[in-house]
């Protein structure tokens, strides 16, 4: 299926990536090319096939719901672009 510039704009918004207007058409062409190549998957008979999301057959392990790590805000905040008084500083969320 061919992807147009409008679709790229919508997907880029969903992915939270600013794409300049001039990039929308080239990206639409590139993505359409890749999706066109991927379309050969439609040749495969997948009737009744169970989707395979992981190669691990084991069941998901469980552990006690207790705190196992943490309590070290300085290390957590160590790489923050901005922090103040033990908090992350982020742009205003609510107007």
């Amino acid at each position: 299926m061919a992807v147009d510039a409008e679709t790229v704009r919508r997907v880029a918004r969903l992915a939270r990536i600013a794409e300049p207007e001039a990039r929308l058409d080239p990206l639409a062409r590139e993505i359409s090319g890749i999706l066109g190549w991927i379309e050969q998957l439609n040749e495969v008979d997948v009737e009744g096939v169970e989707p395979m999301a992981t190669a691990v057959h084991a069941t998901q392990p469980l552990r006690e719901d207790v705190v196992a790590d943490g309590g070290d805000p300085a290390r957590v905040l160590g790489n923050a672009p901005r922090s103040d008084d033990g908090f992350f500083v982020v742009p205003k969320v609510v107007e």
Partner: peptide, 18 residues
């Protein structure tokens, strides 16, 4: 994300999102 990611990474994120 536009400034931090390179072209191939952005392309794959867009395909994945799509």
């Amino acid at each position: 994300r536009a400034e931090g990611f390179g072209d191939e990474v952005k392309r794959r994120i867009l395909i994945g999102t799509y």
